[in-house]
Design a protein around this nucleic acid. Structure first.
Lengths: 341, 341
DNA sequence: ATGAAAGCGCTAACAC
DNA sequence: GTGTTAGCGCTTTCAT
C-alpha cells in the first residue's frame, strides 16, 4: 500500500497537517521541520494521491480534448499542440474521439467522465450552427472550429475567409489566372469549406476576375482519396486552369499526385496551394505551399481561455478569438528555388 | 452546485445508500423503489461524482498512454487504436507526450499524475534495453515497442523479424533480385530498425542471395525527410537495385518521391514496400505496399493485459505477446492492376 | 430489500 | 509555526 500523509507525519514525528504544508509549499514552516518532513517523504517514497486532492479541492488538473479522430493528420497535430500547451500549464489531457458522429459528440458533453477533468476543449465536426444551444456541460467549454458560432461558450477559430483569400492572392500574385478549387462542399456557407470558398471568391472579385463554377470541384468529405478524385473530375471536364487551391493540405496532396500522374509539372504547369500547414507538407515533393492557420496559437489560446473560465466561470461574456494566419510559400507554387526542405 | 446522492435520496424519500444501489445496478432493489429513485435522478439532473467514486473505490476508469509525439503518424494511429479499444471497455485515455526524450520518459513513470489513472501503456523511444530495470511505476505497465524486452512488465510487440522477412520475400517472389534498404540504423541490433534489417537478411539468406551493404542506406532517425535523403544517397552511390524495402512507410514514401523525381517508374523500374500500414499509404500514388503489423491487435491486447494486471497485479509472470502481421500488396509492388484504392 | 456507520487521502478553517 | 477538526461524495461492510 502506498504511503499517505499520515505515514509521513508519523515517520517525521510531526502532525499530518505540517506535512501537507510542506507539500503545498506553504510559507510558514520552519526549515528544520521541513527538512525532517522531506526526509520522511523520500524514505517512504511518498506520492500525493491526486484523486483525494481532486475530491477535496474540486479541481483535477486534467482537461478533456474531444475531437473526431486522431487518425486524421489535422487533428493529430492539433492534439499534439494542445497537449504541449497544457503541459506548460501543468495540465494533463484526456482525449475523447467522437468519430465525427453527432450522437457521440453530444455524449461527450453529457458524460459524467467529463467531471474527471476541469474543462473541455471541443472540436465538433457533426454538430452545426443549429446545435449552438446544445453546447453546454458541467464544466467550462472552449469550442474550436468553424461549425458553430455564437454559442454560450468561448470559441477559438482560424480566420478562414481572410486566410483563404490570402492563399488565392498568393496564386494571383504569381500571375496565375485560372485557379481551380478542390474540396468545396455543395451548398455549405459556414464550415471550413464554405468559409474558405468565400475567401477564394473575395480574392477573385477584388481583382475583377469572374467566379467560374466550372473549375470548382466538389467533394463529400475531406478524406484523403477525395482530393485525387476531385482532380480527376476536373481533368475529365476538360477545363483549363493554371493553379489549384486545395481547401486543405490532404486534398491538395491528392490533387498534386493526380496532376503529376497526368503529366503536368507542379508548379510549372499548375501551381498548387493547400491549407493547414501539416507537418508532412514540408516533406512532399514538391514541398507544398499552404496556409499556417495558427495551430499553436489555437492550442495555447484555448488552454488559456479555458483556465480563465475555470477560475471564473461567469466572469465575462463568451469570447470569440481568431488566430493569426500566414501564407507559407513552398515549391508547389514557387518552384524549387524558393523552398528546398 | 451539482446534486449529490444525498439530494437524490431526500427527493426520492429513501436512504442515500438505496440510491447508490440503484446507480450501481445492485440486484436487490424493489422496482417501485428503483422507479422513485430514477425519477429523482432525472429531476435533479444528478451525475455521479467520479472523483469521489475513484477515491473510495481505488480505481479511476482511466488509463495513461505515453508516447513520443502524436505528430508522428504511426503514433497518432496507435493512439487512435488505443482510445477505441479503451472505449470498448468503458475506459478513457490520458495522453502524455514524451518527445522521445529520455528524461521525460522516466518522468512519466514517476509522476504522481499517473495515479489519476489505473495503468500505463508505454511506448518508449529513448529508453533502451539497458533501462529494463527502470520500467516500473505505482500502477501496472504494459510496454509497447521493440526497444525493451524482458522487463518486469507485460509487453506487446510486433513480429518485426518475421514481418520484415515476409516483406522482403514478397519482393523476391515478384522476381526482384537487388533489394535496397532505406532507413537502417548504424550498429543497431534490437529496436525496429535492427530487427527489421535482420528479417531482411534472413530472407536473402534463405534464398542464397548474398547481403550487400552497398545497397543499404542508413539514417539517424525515421523522420520524414530522411527517407528521401537516404534514397538520394543510394542513387548517388551509383549502385543498381530493382526494389526498395523502406523500414517504415514514411521512409518508403520519401524514397518513392525521390525515385519518381529521378525518372524511375514505381513499380516498373523499382518496386517499393514499406512497413506499418499507415492509413495514408492507401491514398498515395502509387498506393504503397506495406506490412500491417497488427496495430488494432496491439491496442486491444495492451488494454486487455493492462486490465488483467490491474485486477490481479501479481497474478502471472510478465508476458510477451507478439501480434499477427500481414503483407499488404498494393500498387508500389504489384502495379495498378493489383491494388486500385 | 433497505439503512447506518465508517472512511478512502486529502485540503481548508480555525484554533493553539 | 504547528495541530485539530471537519468533510469533499462516494463505496463498502455490516446490521436490520
Amino acid at each position: 500500500m502506498a504511503a499517505t500523509l499520515h505515514d509521513v507525519a508519523r515517520v517525521a514525528g510531526v502532525s499530518f497537517k505540517t506535512v501537507s504544508n510542506v507539500i503545498n509549499h506553504h510559507p510558514h514552516v520552519r526549515d528544520t521541520t521541513r527538512a525532517k518532513v522531506e526526509k520522511a517523504i523520500a524514505e517512504l517514497g511518498y506520492r500525493p494521491n491526486l484523486t483525494a486532492r481532486s475530491l477535496r479541492s474540486g479541481h483535477t488538473g486534467a482537461i478533456t480534448l474531444a475531437l473526431p479522430q486522431l487518425r486524421l493528420p489535422y487533428f493529430a497535430e492539433l492534439a499534439d499542440a494542445v497537449i504541449e500547451a497544457a503541459a506548460k500549464r501543468g495540465l494533463v489531457v484526456l482525449i475523447e474521439q467522437t468519430g465525427a458522429d453527432r450522437k457521440r459528440e453530444l455524449e461527450v458533453m453529457a458524460s459524467p467522465r467529463l467531471k474527471m477533468s476541469d474543462g473541455l476543449i471541443f472540436s465538433p465536426l457533426a454538430l452545426g450552427q443549429e446545435d449552438a444551444d446544445l453546447i453546454k456541460a458541467d464544466v467550462p467549454i472552449v469550442l474550436l472550429g468553424e461549425r458553430i458560432f455564437d454559442s454560450s461558450s468561448d470559441h477559438v477559430t482560424m480566420q478562414n475567409v481572410p486566410a483563404a483569400r490570402a492563399a488565392t492572392e498568393h496564386l494571383l500574385d504569381l500571375g496565375r489566372k485560372r485557379i481551380a478549387v478542390v474540396g468545396a462542399h455543395e451548398g455549405e456557407v459556414i464550415g471550413s469549406a464554405g468559409l474558405r470558398l468565400r475567401g477564394y471568391r473575395e480574392a477573385l472579385e477584388a481583382r475583377g476576375i469572374p467566379y467560374d463554377d466550372g473549375i470548382v470541384a466538389y467533394v463529400v468529405d475531406w478524406h484523403r482519396s477525395n482530393g485525387a478524385a476531385a482532380m480527376h473530375d476536373l481533368l475529365d471536364r476538360g477545363v483549363s486552369f493554371d493553379a489549384v487551391f486545395g481547401l486543405n493540405d490532404t486534398l491538395a496532396q491528392g490533387a498534386v499526385r493526380v496532376l503529376q500522374e497526368a503529366g503536368y509539372r507542379v508548379p510549372d504547369d499548375v501551381a498548387v496551394i493547400g491549407f493547414d500547414d501539416l507537418d508532412e507538407t514540408r516533406y512532399t515533393l514538391p514541398t507544398l505551399s499552404t496556409v499556417d492557420p495558427g495551430r499553436t496559437e489555437i492550442a495555447e489560446t484555448a488552454i488559456r481561455m479555458l483556465l480563465e473560465r475555470i477560475k471564473d466561470p461567469a466572469g465575462t461574456p463568451p469570447r470569440e478569438v481568431e488566430t493569426a494566419f500566414r501564407v507559407v510559400a513552398r515549391e508547389s507554387t514557387m518552384g524549387s528555388a524558393a523552398g528546398a526542405a
